[in-house]
Amino acid sequence: MTTVLVVDDEAPIRLLCRVNLEAENMTVLEAADGDKGLELARAEHPDVILLDVMMPGRSGWEVAEELLTDEDTNGIPIIFLTARAEVRDRAKGIDLGGVDYVTKPFNPVELAPLVRDLVHRVESGERDDLRQEKVAELRELLERD
């Protein structure tokens, strides 16, 4: 079973993620802030982390940096959840080492397929390819701007 850690300070959004992922037979762990998120990631080694960027205390970017520099956790793919719609904010997430990003507002029904596909590709050793795709996508967006 796939375990997903949701890190977001907004309770309704954590709930949204939980009900929709659990509906697809995934296990959901919740953290209301960055510290709690780090703690759970280290303890539970989830398969995927859905990480909000704008949180009180440690921001999502800080949490991601810490996870990715820790050998114990740097294998966990991170999907950023962000209300910052600007391309350069999204690019920052990918630059940091995230594999994907989801811009708020999003359709929670599409979360589970996204997570499933991502886990599959990462397990097939295509993590880098995934990131390359995202980088190319962002580059295209940047050029369009």
């Binding site: 719609a85 708020k104 929670p108």
Partner: peptide
């Protein structure tokens, strides 16, 4: 976007 996410998300759910 934050309240919109909840409104849209719960509606879709």
């Amino acid at each position: 976007r934050t309240p919109l996410t909840s409104i849209y998300g719960f509606a879709e759910t």
